[in-house]
Amino acid sequence: MKPQRHRWPGSRRLNGLPRDGRRLLAGLPGVRWLCALLLVASLAAQAAGITVTDDRGRVVDLPRPAMRIVSLLPSATEAVCALQACERLVGVDRFSDWPQQQIQALPRVGGLEDAQLERIVALKPDLVLAGRFARAVDRLEALGIAVLVLEAKEMSDVLRVLETTARALGLPGAGEALWQRLNERIDAAAARVPPRMRGQRVYFEVAPGPFATGEVSYLGQILHRLALGNIVPAALGPFPKMNPEFVVRARPDLIMASERDFATMAGRPGWAQLDALRSGRHCVFSDAFFPVLLHPGPRLGEAAEAITDCLNGLERATR
């Protein structure tokens, strides 16, 4: 860049003033007022925009509440809709499945890992909700689109994600309110757990492998709040892959799984002798409902209720 030349007569005159003259000018009360006014104006301009910090720790500036949103995460889609802003979604990923009515007509823009950039950009979103470490995130940001990266592993993360989303929507506090309602549902569900079921040790299979739910995952924490035990030690992390023999040796009192996974359990070597399988002490969730349990979003209250309903059913059956 060339050094700026003082082409404007005004500036030349100002710069041409003797030092004392300039000090005199700065000392004028009017200039001070002007400065203060400018400061207030700039603050006001900043307040009109929204600044949120996402789960990468990056500060995302939005000039106004997001009105055209593309969600690349099923849980984010659910969060936006639960915050009563479903109509602001202009595109969702291929795994989003709730609320079906509202999103079934929306364009599908691929998955998080293989997002279709051109489709997303053509939708002209002012905010994209995505997960961590997806290549689309960098590219979208390079194309000038605001991206909010959300990542929830534990229940406390769910609160943060909901509130971050709500603030980006221009609804500060709505995320916390939603979290409150979600918690009340979980507490109500916990109160309904039959006394005899409390303390029962659960094996919750999230995927064949078998992958189980550990105590530190949001799902494990919900089980804990429902006063259920877990055969998986917390040290193994959120969704550890188990040795099938471990499950047999741990003798879970209750088994929970999706319909599809449960169908294969009795056929696994040694699993047929599990008491929980033989005595029918299991909660089997339909494949259509299972995502409710797996998405760390606003429907976890529903998930807790479904588990409690199953526990009550088991209680009635054994009485």
Binding site: G111, R139, A142, F239
Partner: peptide, 24 residues
């Protein structure tokens, strides 16, 4: 096995994609 959530990302990598090529 330790982190199954990496599965889909790796799958996409193994299949190759030209979708994320920008000017940089």
């Amino acid at each position: 096995l330790i982190s199954p959530q990496a599965l889909r990302g790796r799958q996409v990598f193994l299949l190759g994609t030209t979708g994320f090529l920008g000017w940089g």
